[in-house]
Amino acid sequence: MTVTLPFTASNGVTIDRDLEGDLAASSGQYLGKDAEQAFRELFAAQHPNAHGLHRDSRFPEYIFIRQHRSDDGDGRAVGVIDLEQKEFFTAWENLNRDSRERWIIAGHAWLDANPDPAPWMDAKPGEVWRLTTKSEQSNENAWRLESGAFMFDDGGFVLADEIVAGERIWPKADA
């Protein structure tokens, strides 16, 4: 959802930019209680996925929330909140793929469109990974730099979006 300024929160406080381009609340408060609530609503409207809640324009009656703890042999799980019926369901990516239930179809569509991020995307600076890249298609050791890139033993660099497979080799996962 795109949010434009001025923005009026549910408490009636309007947020807009002042002459210097700073955000200002109509209440005259910078971070008073009313202005704080208005800013929170503004930021929530600008970033609806910040709390793990997701929307899909193809299924406007649902909100989706990834349920990592429910992943099992049936695959990844997603919670499906039906806003119209006020019900909550869980859909698994490999279960009931032939269902005609709209919430299950919506859950599968959301899971298909939102794969979990690759593990190397969360690599920390200093970790060593064995990586396979799109261009080389070979395993090479690389370590994560502060910049977010990976550096190979020979001094070459690769960005995370060029990696097709990876395994952390240091420190060990159980360390």
Rank of each mutant, 00 (worst) to 15 (best):
G28C: 08
G107L: 08
E136H: 10
R102E: 15
G21R: 06
I163P: 00
G156H: 01
S27W: 06
L95H: 12
F59P: 11
P171Q: 02
A173C: 02
W120A: 02
T90L: 09
R55F: 14
S70K: 15
E36A: 14
L42A: 03
D112K: 09
D71A: 11
F88K: 14
A118I: 07
V80P: 08
E36V: 12
G73A: 12
N96A: 13
W103M: 08
R102L: 12
E36F: 10
E93N: 06
V164D: 00
Q46M: 14
R130G: 05
P6G: 04
S10R: 04
F39S: 05
D116K: 08
A44Y: 11
S135Q: 15
G126I: 03
N94G: 11
I65K: 15
A106L: 07
W92I: 03
S70D: 15
A24W: 10
E20S: 11
S99C: 07
D74M: 12
D34N: 13
P125C: 06
E140C: 05
M121R: 10
A91S: 12
S135F: 10
Q137W: 09
A113Y: 05
D18E: 07
E61I: 10
A118Y: 05
E162Y: 02
E146Q: 03
L131P: 00
D22R: 13
D34S: 13
R58L: 14
G28M: 02
V80W: 07
T132G: 04
E61G: 11
Q46P: 08
T133E: 02
M151P: 00
W120T: 02
L19N: 15
D18H: 08
G166W: 00
A9T: 06
S57L: 15
R97G: 11
P171H: 00
I163F: 01
A149N: 04
T133K: 01
L23S: 05
R168Y: 01
P171E: 06
M151E: 06
K33D: 11
D98C: 10
E136R: 07
G148W: 01
S70T: 14
A175K: 02
M151L: 03
W120S: 03
D56C: 09
T8C: 08
N49Q: 14
F64H: 06
K86P: 10
R168W: 00
S57P: 12
W143L: 09
I104E: 12
L31P: 08
W170Q: 04
D18A: 05
P125D: 05
N141T: 03
G156Y: 01
D71F: 12
D154C: 02
S10P: 05
F59Y: 14
N141E: 03
E167H: 01
